[in-house]
Every structure is written in C-alpha cells, then in structure tokens.
C-alpha cells in the first residue's frame, strides 16, 4: 500500500541531522509519517510518535544554540498536537474532513428542525428538573430525562456507526488512488455538523441527573 507514497517521506531533520523548522502546510499525517486514512493503525502511530519524541525532546537540546532549542520546542509541540488529534478516532475524522473540504464552521447553520425540537425539549426538561421542588413532578421529569438520555445516546451511537462505514468507504477510495468521494465527504460533514448539538445535550442531561443524586 506504500506505492502511493513514492515521494521521499517528510523528515524534521535535514541531511546533517539538524532539526529544521516545520513548514505550516505539513499536515499531521505527513508529520508523523502515517497514511492519510480514517482508520489507521494506532499502535504504529504511537511507535512513530515516541520515536520522534525521543529525538526531538527539548531536554536533549539544553546546551544547543537558542535557535535550535526553539525549533526543538516547536517541533515537540507540533508532534504532540498531531498525535493527540490522530490517536482519537473522532478528532482524526474531523481533522481529515476539514483538510479535505474546509472548516466545519462553514456548515449550514440551520440543522434539521426535528432534531432541534428534541434538543430544546430535552434541555428545557433538564433545566426544569434542576429547579423543581415538587417531588412527584421531579419524578416525572427524571423519567423524561432518562428517556431523552437513551434517545440521544442512541443518536450518538448511530453517528459513530455511520462514521465508521463512511470512513471505510473513504479509505477504500483513497487506496485505489482516487480522491475522497464527494458524497462521502458531504455525509461526514453533515454528521459532524450535528455532533456537538448531540454531545452538548447529553452533557446537560447527565449533569442534571447527576446533580440530583
């Protein structure tokens, strides 16, 4: 599968083994020397990260000139960020989709009305529950919150399953040396665009239920 990477892999070090400044356009995948894929081998990723970390760590450059120390710090920060992003499957997909098709902020700001209705209902119930003093009423609300919790958890699971499938389709297309299929990218953007609404609602529901315990 390494046929696609015929170019020389990126290296933080120049021919004399000195640290170079990393250009801004070098992405996380290139930096850590792993394939640009949705589903990647996290063990190999970890190995690459530690390997680089051992070579770049500022501790090794305490006596080096200031410019080199700064480059070591910068490089360490960059590989840390790259590793943190790529090791998390969701953060990785968000990063990849944005690399491919621009920031998620450019998404539609008016999501499906049915989802929003459910979000407002759940959030309002959570708020009511938190200031509710009547015991019977509180019990009813608690039931509603638990039901909503189940509903939104299922939505989140559904998102993850869909993202896995789309990710596999993406990787398959990339392996054939094609570009990412626009339809797959569009679907992923739409799922990721709704993700924070679902997460925030789950957080509110959880907080409300926990505080009452």
């Amino acid at each position: 599968m390494s046929e696609a990477t015929k170019e020389k892999p990126f290296s933080v070090f120049n021919e004399d083994g000195e640290i170079e400044a990393i250009p801004a356009e070098v992405d996380h995948f290139v930096l850590l020397g792993v394939g640009r894929k949705c589903d990647l081998d996290t063990e190999a990723l970890e190995t690459k990260f530690y390997e680089l970390n051992r070579k770049l760590h500022p501790d090794f450059f305490m006596d080096a000139p200031v410019a080199v120390r700064i480059r070591s710090l910068d490089a360490t920060a960059r590989i840390n960020e790259a590793y943190q992003t790529l090791k998390d499957p969701i953060a990785r997909v968000i990063y990849l989709v944005q690399l491919e098709s621009g920031k998620l902020e450019e998404n539609e700001r008016t999501p499906p009305p049915e989802l929003f209705e459910e979000i407002f209902e759940a959030q309002e119930a959570a708020e009511e529950f938190q200031c509710c003093v009547d015991e019977e009423e509180a019990e009813n609300l608690r039931e509603r919150l638990n039901a909503a919790m189940g509903c939104f958890s299922a939505l989140r699971d559904g998102q993850h399953t869909a993202l896995d499938k789309l990710g596999a389709a993406w990787d398959e297309a990339m392996e054939k040396n094609e570009s990412a299929p626009p339809e797959v990218v569009r679907k992923m953007r739409s799922i990721l665009g709704q993700r924070n609404y679902i997460e925030n609602t789950l957080t509110s529901l959880k907080r409300a239920l926990e505080e009452s315990e």
Binding site: R109, P111, F120, Y197
Partner: peptide, 30 residues
C-alpha cells in the same frame, strides 16, 4: 438556529402588534 462548531442552540421569537411594531421578544439559548 445553532452553531455547529460549539453546539450552542438559540431560539428567538418576536410578537408584532397591529401597528407593525415588535411588542414582545423572547429567547431561549443553551
């Protein structure tokens, strides 16, 4: 409306009187 980047949601409503003036406005933001 909502902000996909942070997941904030906002509902804003206006009530317009016979003279075409907004007599009331309400919001709910999470």
């Amino acid at each position: 409306v909502g902000a996909p980047e942070c997941g904030d949601v906002m509902k804003l409503q206006i009530k317009v009187d016979d003279g075409g003036l907004i007599e009331d406005a309400k919001f709910k933001t999470f």
